[in-house]
Amino acid sequence: MADDKQMTPYTKTVMDHFLNPRNMGDMPDADAEGTVGSAACGDIMKVFLKIQDNRIVEAKFKTFGCGSAIASSSMATEMLKGKTIDEALKMTNRQVVDALGGLPAYKMHCSVLAEDSVKAALHDYLRKHPEAVPAGYVVPSKEEEQAANAQTGHGEH
């Protein structure tokens, strides 16, 4: 926990997840992984998932980025655990921000990056397991996904 007497530029929850990130690390036997962002833009997020019976049983991340980017990845992976693929696909950056107790306006893109990296990992899984695609959901190709992420300003360069 951040020292209560210290001033922080973020909420206590953000600082806690930044200083003590949950689910940080590699997952060599991941069922799926997704990476978005670029070093030049200042943040890269990589999400690893382990999925059993259409449910996320484990989620991990690695992030190059600022405090709120690291906290957003920590919180997003926390929120993913136990969700079905369908539920995880519906997870939004807003939910991550709310769980963190808010982010400054100019840091909202960190939460968008978290949502997009989660989606990238889920799409990676769904491309390998078409039978798991929820009814009516269209999985973008890797190329489409990279183009979309480049448009929102954090595609892989």
């Binding site: 951040a2 020292d3 210290q6 530029p9 930044f18 200083l19 833009c41 200042g42 943040d43 190059f64 980025g65 600022c66 405090g67 709120s68 980017a69 690291i70 840091k107």
Partner: peptide, 24 residues
């Protein structure tokens, strides 16, 4: 291989005040 703001925040947490030229 690392970003500036996160370095700044960790140093501040350890009692060291610095600045960064990173975009964040």
């Amino acid at each position: 291989f690392i970003e500036g703001e996160s370095q700044l925040l960790l140093l501040d947490h350890q009692g060291i005040a610095v600045a960064s030229g990173g975009s964040c």
